[in-house]
Simulated assay, not measured.
Amino acid sequence: MSVIKEFREFAIKGNVIDLAVGVIIGGAFGKIVDSVVADLIMPVVGLVFGKLDFSNLYLVLGQVPAGTVDTLEGLRKAGVPVFAYGHFITVAVNFLILAFIIFMMVKQINRLKRETPVEAPPAPAPAPTAEDILLLREIRDSLKK
């Protein structure tokens, strides 16, 4: 079997197609969730807790040349090594909020998908066989005596 035939069989398997569809839908869903977090959740969080932006927290690791603007962007433009831990904190907090939102959405979707199990009707009694009928007649006749 040629490599092309093997690849074709692999590519048209249901698993590969399902995975491709999942990746595409996942990308679109990610944009929706990003928008929910950025446009709906973070403004409320910012209102309640103040602006949650740690991106300007950093430690200078080298010498700062004279005349350099003392901001993270200014230090980076000047080539000064900085330990920018604030951006990591902001991304981590955003991730936690995003993960919680996704968890709540999946939880609600699963709740909606659950259906109450329908009880199966009881199985009908099997039809009596000829032997069963003979035994019942024998019992009936023995009770008549």
Results as ranks from 00 to 15, higher is better:
42 M>A: 07
95 F>T: 15
75 L>N: 06
87 H>R: 04
11 A>E: 13
119 E>V: 15
29 F>N: 02
131 E>A: 09
78 A>N: 05
96 L>D: 03
55 S>R: 04
103 F>A: 00
115 E>P: 03
130 A>C: 00
68 T>G: 06
78 A>T: 02
112 L>G: 14
21 V>G: 11
31 K>H: 12
113 K>E: 14
98 L>Y: 01
129 T>A: 13
6 E>Q: 10
95 F>W: 15
84 A>G: 08
119 E>C: 13
88 F>H: 03
24 I>A: 10
33 V>R: 11
116 T>D: 13
138 E>H: 08
53 D>L: 03
71 T>I: 03
87 H>E: 00
88 F>C: 06
22 G>T: 12
6 E>A: 06
112 L>H: 10
127 A>F: 03
111 R>H: 12
105 M>S: 13
103 F>E: 10
55 S>G: 14
123 A>M: 10
44 V>L: 13
23 V>L: 01
27 G>V: 04
28 A>I: 03
76 R>H: 12
129 T>S: 13
132 D>R: 03
58 Y>P: 14
71 T>E: 11
121 P>L: 02
35 S>M: 06
101 I>P: 11
138 E>I: 01
75 L>E: 11
28 A>T: 09
32 I>L: 13
91 V>K: 15
124 P>E: 08
143 L>C: 01
88 F>P: 11
46 G>Q: 14
70 D>H: 11
135 L>T: 02
130 A>W: 04
12 I>T: 03
95 F>E: 05
17 I>Y: 05
40 L>V: 14
95 F>V: 12
95 F>I: 06
110 N>E: 05
30 G>Q: 05
37 V>H: 06
118 V>D: 14
102 I>A: 05
37 V>E: 04
26 G>T: 09
14 G>T: 14
117 P>Q: 15
52 L>M: 13
12 I>N: 04
122 P>N: 00
82 V>I: 05
61 L>R: 09
6 E>N: 03
106 V>P: 00
